[in-house]
Design a protein around this nucleic acid. Structure first.
Lengths: 340, 340
DNA sequence: GACTGGCACTCGTTACAGTCGAGTGCCAGG
DNA sequence: CCTGGCACTCGACTGTAACGAGTGCCAGTC
């Protein structure tokens, strides 16, 4: 039941035309626009087979064909090659990312750039804390019983947290605490800190013990448990392109899903290696996104993955172009962070 | 030309019914649902006057009447009184905001709460830097020629910025720099820092002068010029309620405006006093938001205003309820920040 | 003078019938 | 295996008619 080359060519043509025109494509139009070298009737036969196999479907009898999720999948896997970016796009990327002053700035610029280039909704995860290491810990006394804990990660990410001490702690002791936590934790990956923090408490002088214990709790909470992965979003207005035909008429579920940061993080944050992932319609595990496709990849300096980024759009999207753009942007951001 | 009491009552009834049903309201339905004590014909005459004066209009001949922006304005100014919140709502607010661990958390919880209670798009500005004062400045050496500057404001806001030094600076000098900037700047409002920073450079020992100069530049940039006002957004999915009838059919312009943080900040950040502002449709200066209304207010501990918050929705919204909720949330957040 | 009941009128909505045409499936022939 | 031809389907569009909510106006009443 294998599909011969011509049937694949027909499928490719259908996907390309449908993506371009947003209208069901018929056999006649197909042979006119592509050099298939056969007649419409032949194409119709091929279409019948493709439909039987579930790669395309008819919205109604006597309408043209539309790719199914499965059809897009086949297209992405076997029928398309990644388009190289145009020089203009490359320049746009560089121009956009140059001059970012801090991490926030980098992330914001990236997400806007991605939205603009793909004309879709873009998402960028901040460099994951779990994959960062500690560059410096700072303790700032707010009052005698309150400290502000500031953690600076090697990615430039800064996290802060208020620590309520069980009893007043003099300034000198704060200095000691600061020295201790820095000596022990600086340089280690956040995912590896729990035992180190534990050790800190145990090795600590009795005098500092109570304060260190609370501090340790907050540290563990902030750095490990409360995996506070942040993300930035842009381009939601692009959802309205294609006038409600995409997304089966309602943006509601999409917008809802986009507000659930946790959900989105799961989606793009799973990238362990830096391979590009494409999730098409149904393949998506989140119900609200069954009408959408997601193209995502990991980014980071060299081969390390610090976080994920990607775009979300209608299943009817320009996959080759989108994939190329997502990859390119991820690579540039990776390089940028490497200079850090 | 004055509108007598009954005409005002008719207008109020029209606004209330239209907001509730989202359908043009006719004279018959009006007398049935409200105790106006007159016949439909009389109401029709009143309506004719109201229409002449521009408070209501007919979508088409032989349809009911719909309030105009001007009608809503009159309603808000003179015909409605702020609804007290239900105990359930008060409890919701408290429950939602209790347990926030840091400023980010407070802001995020607030914006979600506001979106949920009003069922509209909510926006919360982070406590404005310009109105905060410096609690502590930290300098973390990254390399011999790079420092991470971390500024902690009294509102709990933390800003960081990379400083590229013109020449290597030994650790001891960094300590000196840290001491100097803290001595001079801690406690002062950010808007008042420029002369202080200037003085710092001038009074500085020749040895530290070059480093201090660069540091000063970054300080001024970060703290003053680059008024980096941040904001949080939630509830965009609520725009889709009312099925595209609101916002004259297209969410596009609204979503676009919401992505322009600068624009939104202008909108809600202008609150100098903590009075509630209501902008209805056309009154809005941003073209993209001509089909929407904005209810905003300032918040902060006591009478000081640290930032703004508000909601955005269709002109056809429950103004009394929304205003009450926005005010209540702002008050709670203010109290929360006062405990800080 | 203000209100009311009655009535003709408007116009959007809905239903239904008819036409058009894109696109199909199938079949007989090359 | 491919092709041209043909009958068929069914959505999109058009035109007509009936319906009804809602109005404006007017003459009559308190």
């Amino acid at each position: 039941m294998g599909l011969d080359d011509r049937k694949l060519a027909v499928l490719r043509a259908i996907v390309e035309d449908y993506v371009a025109t947003q209208e069901p494509v018929g056999s006649k139009a197909l042979v006119e626009r592509h050099q298939l070298g056969v007649s419409p009737a032949t194409v119709r036969n091929d279409m019948a087979v493709l439909e039987e196999e579930g790669y395309i479907r008819q919205p109604h009898t006597s309408a043209g064909r539309v790719p199914t999720d499965r059809g897009y999948r086949l297209f992405v896997d076997r029928l398309s090659r990644v388009k190289p970016l145009s020089p203009a796009e490359r320049r746009a990327i560089e121009r956009f990312l140059v001059g970012a002053v801090d991490l926030d700035d980098v992330v914001h610029r990236t997400v806007r750039l991605l939205a603009q280039l793909t004309r879709q909704v873009a998402v960028v995860q901040y460099p994951s804390l779990a994959r960062s290491s500690v560059r410096h810990l700072e303790l700032v006394p707010i009052s005698t019983t309150r400290l502000m804990l500031v953690m600076i990660a090697d990615t430039g990410r800064v996290e802060q947290r208020l620590v309520e001490l069980p009893a007043p702690v003099p300034a000198d002791d704060v200095t000691d605490l600061r020295r201790l936590v820095n000596e022990k934790l600086v340089g280690s990956r956040l995912s590896e800190t729990p035992p180190l923090v534990q050790a800190l408490v145990e090795e600590c002088t009795p005098l500092l013990r109570p304060a260190m214990t609370t501090l340790a709790t907050v540290l563990l909470e902030t750095l490990v448990e409360r995996h506070e992965e942040r993300l930035a979003l842009a381009g939601t207005a692009n959802l309205t392109r294609g006038g409600l035909l995409d997304f089966q008429g309602s943006l509601r579920p999409i917008l809802e899903a986009l507000e659930e940061e946790v959900v989105i993080l799961k989606l793009i944050g799973e990238a362990e290696s830096s391979t590009t992932r494409v999730l098409i319609g149904d393949e998506n595990e989140i119900d609200n996104l069954r009408a959408a496709s997601v193209v995502s990849t990991g980014y980071g300096p060299g081969a390390t993955v610090l976080g994920g980024l990607g775009v979300l759009g209608p299943t009817r999207m320009d996959y080759p172009g989108t994939i190329a753009t997502v990859r390119a942007v991820a690579r540039y951001v990776g390089e940028l962070l490497a200079q850090n």
